[in-house]
Simulated scan of single mutants.
Amino acid sequence: MDTGAVAVLAGIAAFGGLLGVLAGLFGLRQVRRVQRTGVCVAALVKQPPGRTSDGSGRPRPLLQFVTEDERVMEIVCPVAPTRRRPLTDGDRVLLRYDPADPRTVVVQGREHLGLERAFIAGGAAVLLLSLTLLTVA
């Protein structure tokens, strides 16, 4: 490959890596902001209507809670249930919601920050790879 093609490839990779890092940082920032400034409430876990009996397709459960200003909110759970920690119909979970936008929630103990950290690490790796390509070319 000639130097110009490598530089273009490195530039595209650097842009993609930067987007990955920024997406991960934004996700971490949102979770920490809601944890710090959000209102803590108990939410009721409800299974969405039309759930199949064999469990195929497994839609995420709904969370129903009441805000400080007495509005009843019902949102899709931001985290999927796992075998170790299932979210069954009728369970109660603690969550924090953003008072400015009650649809923005963080379920206590189920933050799963691994995805955001993976975006940061993957983006940084691609960014370093693109810088390496530029120095070699």
Rank of each mutant, 00 (worst) to 15 (best):
T82N: 04
R36C: 02
V21Y: 03
R60C: 04
V31R: 10
G123N: 05
E111C: 06
L22H: 08
C40R: 07
V6F: 03
V107A: 07
G57R: 04
I120K: 14
T135M: 12
R33L: 13
P49A: 14
A13T: 05
L18W: 14
P59C: 04
V45K: 05
C40K: 08
D2S: 09
S53C: 03
T52K: 13
F15M: 15
A118G: 08
E74W: 02
A5K: 10
P86S: 07
R58S: 14
T37A: 13
E68I: 00
D91H: 07
D91A: 10
A100P: 01
R32A: 13
I120H: 09
E68Q: 12
L62V: 01
D101W: 02
L62K: 08
R29D: 08
A23L: 10
T52E: 11
V93G: 02
P78S: 09
V66N: 00
A5F: 07
D54F: 08
L87M: 14
V41R: 02
G55T: 01
L44Q: 12
E70K: 06
L131D: 03
L9G: 01
L25R: 14
P49K: 14
R92A: 08
I75Q: 03
V105W: 03
D54I: 05
A124Y: 02
G90N: 05
T104C: 11
G55E: 12
V41P: 01
A125E: 10
L63C: 06
L113N: 14
F15K: 01
I75W: 01
L128D: 07
R110V: 03
L133K: 11
R83V: 12
V8P: 06
Q47A: 14
G122M: 14
L113T: 13
R71E: 00
F65V: 04
R92G: 01
A42K: 10
P86L: 05
E111D: 05
G27E: 08
G27F: 05
G55Y: 07
T67L: 02
T67Q: 04
V136H: 06
T135C: 06
G38V: 00
R58L: 13
P59A: 06
R29T: 12
A13C: 15
L133R: 02
R92L: 09
P61Y: 13
L9V: 10
R36T: 06
R58E: 09
G16Q: 07
R32F: 05
Q108P: 00
G20D: 04
G27Q: 14
V45G: 11
G50R: 09
R51L: 14
R36K: 10
D54V: 06
G55Q: 08
G11M: 05
Q47K: 13
F65K: 00
Q30C: 06
L63E: 05
I120W: 10
T67M: 03
T67Y: 01
E70W: 00
V107C: 04
A23C: 04
P99N: 02
P61F: 11
A124V: 15
C40N: 06
R117C: 09
D98H: 03
R84M: 09
P61H: 04
Q108G: 01
A43M: 04
L129T: 04
D98E: 09
L87I: 10
G16C: 15
L129E: 00
R83F: 06
F119N: 06
G109N: 03
G17S: 10
L62M: 11
L131E: 13
R117V: 15
R84I: 03
E111P: 05
